[in-house]
């Protein structure tokens, strides 16, 4: 059994491929997480304008992407756009899809955070002469981020896991490379190794989150 699923020779042979996949996964995460955070922040700032003409379309936008599977979005870009004469390549498609999808999730989290800061905070800031934007940047956002930190981390965990979708559109990230190695060696060991790498990489974050979440839910009482 160990010979089949955790074959040392195969690990040695496949290691360079798997390692390059890991590096690409990290690189991809370092690109899509800030991209998503940025998109989410823009959404949340727009939503903080209390005008219903702004708020409603934004809510619809967020709900749209909450209902839409990210893989479908990715395939739509990857397989659909070429018919419109637009060939973007897997990497760009992943970046765009993540910007839209995870941006919506981050946006919802930021919005909840901003809503959680009492209105008196802005009023106090404005009364000392801060502009609306200054009050948002110096007073509201720091508190908002702290209030929703567990949710932000939890979504970031999901985003990193989601980079594995890149394998479907031939982005050579960890899962894709592991499957390449698997088909080269006719052995499942590379996929097992990839799974172990994901686990070791993300376990600390999961542990941290489960402690934060327990505290948050208990704090509501």
């Amino acid at each position: 059994m160990i010979q089949t699923f955790f074959n040392i020779e195969i690990i040695a042979a496949a290691w360079p491929i798997v390692l390059s996949g890991l590096l690409n996964t990290i690189l991809l995460s370092l690109i899509v997480v800030p991209l998503g955070l940025f998109g989410g922040l823009i959404l949340a700032l727009l939503a903080s304008v209390k005008n219903p003409l702004v708020r409603w379309p934004l809510m619809a936008w967020v709900d749209f992407f909450r209902a839409f599977p990210p893989l479908v979005l990715l395939i739509l870009l990857f397989a659909g756009l070429p018919f419109a004469g637009l060939e973007l390549g897997g990497f760009a498609c992943v970046a765009i899809a993540f910007f839209l999808n995870t941006g919506a999730y981050y946006g919802e989290i930021f919005r909840a955070g901003i809503d959680s800061v009492p209105a008196g905070q802005v009023e106090a800031g404005r009364s000392t002469g801060l502009s609306r934007l200054q009050a948002m940047g110096y007073i509201v956002l720091p508190q908002a981020v702290r209030n929703v930190l567990p949710d932000l981390l939890s979504n970031t965990l999901e985003v990193v896991k989601l980079t594995s979708l890149g394998s479907v559109v031939a982005v050579p990230e960890l899962l894709y490379q592991a499957r390449q190695a698997q088909s080269l060696t006719y052995n499942p060991t590379p996929i097992v190794v990839a799974a172990i790498i994901y686990f070791l990489m993300l376990w600390p974050l999961v542990r941290l989150l489960s402690r934060l979440e327990n505290r948050a839910l208990a704090g509501r009482r």
Partner: peptide
């Protein structure tokens, strides 16, 4: 199961288990 990407679990089951 919180750490592993769902797609990795699916691939592991579908392409890995047949070896067993």
């Amino acid at each position: 199961f919180r750490s592993l990407p769902p797609l990795v679990i699916i691939v592991l089951m579908y392409f890995g288990l047949p070896y067993a």
